Amino acid sequence: MKKILMLITALFLFGCDRTYTVEEFKNDEKLTDEYQKKCQNGEIDGDSLNCQNSRKAVVVRNKVSNASWN
């Protein structure tokens, strides 16, 4: 019974992390930097949706800043 309770608790604690969209990451550079650091140092699984979305936001932000407006 203790094992089941511990498993449920662990799933609750690890499953409650909010998932941010690419748009949210694009609009909040501080949030993007925070998640990039967490993803790179292994604090968060690099394959998580937040890591993927933060990487996409960085790519989109870099494309816009490197665009030629001639």
Rank of each mutant, 00 (worst) to 15 (best):
E43K: 10
Q40H: 07
N62I: 01
D45F: 04
D17G: 15
K56A: 03
V58E: 06
F14V: 15
C16M: 14
K3S: 15
S48P: 12
L13K: 06
L31M: 12
L11T: 00
N62P: 06
V58H: 01
E29H: 07
E24I: 11
N41W: 10
S68I: 02
K26Q: 09
L49R: 04
Y20T: 01
G46K: 02
V58K: 01
N41S: 11
R18Q: 12
K37N: 13
L49P: 03
E24D: 10
G15M: 08
I4Y: 14
R55P: 03
L49G: 01
M1F: 12
I4E: 12
M1A: 15
G46D: 12
T9W: 08
G42M: 00
G46W: 02
K37W: 09
E29F: 07
S68N: 14
I4C: 10
N66A: 15
G46Q: 04
I8A: 15
E43N: 13
W69V: 12
E34Q: 14
N50V: 03
I4F: 14
E34C: 04
R61S: 13
D28Y: 03
Q52I: 03
N53D: 02
V58S: 05
E29A: 15
Q52P: 00
E24F: 09
L7T: 03
A67Y: 07
S48Y: 01
K2Y: 08
T32I: 04
V60M: 08
Y20F: 11
E29G: 06
L11Y: 01
T9R: 06
K30N: 12
V59N: 05
W69C: 12
F12H: 12
S68M: 11
L11G: 13
Y35V: 01
L11V: 02
Q36S: 13
K38C: 09
V60R: 00
N27C: 10
K26L: 11
I44Y: 07
E43T: 08
S68V: 03
K30V: 09
S65M: 14
Q36V: 13
N66M: 09
M6Y: 11
Q36D: 12
N27F: 05
N66F: 10
G46P: 01
D45R: 01
Q40A: 15
N53P: 01
L13S: 10
T19N: 02
Y35I: 00
K38V: 01
C39L: 04
Q52D: 02
M1K: 08
N62T: 10
N27S: 15
D45S: 10
A67H: 07
K38D: 11
E24N: 06
M1H: 11
R55L: 06
I4M: 13
L13N: 08
S68H: 14
A10R: 00
L7G: 07
N53K: 03
L5C: 12
K26N: 05
K3W: 11
V59D: 08
D28F: 04
D33A: 07
T9C: 15
L11A: 14
N62S: 10
V59W: 01
E23I: 04
Q52T: 04
